[in-house]
Write a protein that binds this DNA or RNA. Structure first.
Lengths: 209, 209
DNA sequence: GTTGGAGTTGACCATACGGTCAGGAAAAGA
DNA sequence: TCTTTTCCTGACCGTATGGTCAACTCCAAC
């Protein structure tokens, strides 16, 4: 019937299984860490025999690398929300929104990323030194421009970025702690309140309101 | 010579070795996570044969539990700095100072704690539900008091606490990322700048200046 | 419908891991 | 000095892990 799918049957299978495995891997790596995760458990979560994982990914490390790389892409994509903003209220506001949304939608990815960095970034050190460094320098300059324009108070742009990362990612990485204190997962309304609180405190904190 | 040490010789040895092992364990758990850490590596770092670890600690999990418990104590101790303050500037300012100092002096401990929580707090869930929950409720009430007194803007106290934790612990947990972006470890002066930046942004963010 | 390569998988392997233990060394008490 | 208790450790064990492989099925192209 759907001739659009017909010729890509093989690719389809491959793509579907790779996605399935990556999804399971993200979850297991987030829950157990790289060292604590086992290929067997990832296979079970994915619903595939272990040997099949090794057909698509040559090693545990390569699988892990792909998972981390995927997260970094999401992270970078959200970072674009800061651009083309007339000022800090819109730019940083949008960035906080985007990053809070990631914490909500991809908590496992966030945890894997956090874990990777905490352990000294053994597999993504090069990303940190190139892409992330460039991105950070660019946004720091952008923020400095807003300061020079008098659109916000003079704060150290680097430390502002660290605070943005910390405050937003905390809702994913420490989600379990928050849920425990909250007596359950955050509701839709509580998520909005979290977002608003973070935005209000930071925007007021940089004198942009 | 030192008769003060003489009668406690046995205890001395025990205490010293336990401390040595706990110190090594904290480092290794921080670097590799629970699953990635091995008793052999901890033993090597401590400079003791592996079998000796099992003389002092019956299992890897018990050793880990002790490490996490130690960190929680430090954490709780710092938490006291918020009490007996006349207002948010002093109370929250002191708390930020204390927590930033922990991030600087005990980065490994902070990482182990973060890792534990990220993995669902398998061994310290009871702490979260009792001690931490009580502490949080108490400080939230304290903050609410300051709000009612008009000493700061009305913000959600819980989310303020989350931001405090996030912003300060970030300098330990993501220290590797910060060091990479910074081109090396933070200097004494940079640490002061970090502390001042966090304090300035948050205190202004809650309208307490 | 036959052929070639992609996809699949149970069985298997070498290794590394947490943990044990017997027996010796060192310290404390008598 | 002799005895008892604590401390120490090399050698060892069962298990679980990451990874391999040969045999198989399924799909697409001719």
């Amino acid at each position: 019937m759907s001739e659009a799918l017909r010729p890509a049957r093989r690719n389809e299978i491959r793509q579907q299984n790779e996605a399935l495995i990556l999804q399971a891997a993200e979850k297991v790596f987030a829950e157990a860490g790289f060292g604590g995760a086992t290929m067997q458990l990832i296979a079970d979560v994915a619903g595939l025999p272990k040997a099949n994982l090794h057909y698509y990914f040559t090693s545990k490390e390569e699988l892990y690398r792909k998972v981390v790389s995927n997260i970094f892409d999401i992270w970078l994509h959200a970072a674009e929300s800061m651009d083309n903003a007339p000022g800090p209220v819109e730019g940083i506001g949008a960035y906080i929104d985007a990053k809070m949304e990631i914490s909500r939608r991809h908590p496992d990815g966030s945890k894997v990323w956090a874990s990777e960095v905490m352990h000294g970034a053994p597999v993504i050190q090069d990303y940190l030194e190139t892409t992330l460094r460039d991105w950070t320098a660019g946004r720091a300059a952008l923020i400095q421009g807003w300061i020079d324009d008098g659109q916000m108070v003079a704060v150290n742009p680097d430390h502002l970025l660290y605070m943005l990362w910390a405050a937003t990612q905390h809702y994913a990485d420490f989600g379990h702690q928050i849920e425990t204190l909250n007596g359950g997962p955050l509701t839709e309304l509580q998520w909005r309140e979290a977002k608003d609180s973070v935005k209000a405190m930071i925007l007021r904190g940089i004198g942009a309101v």
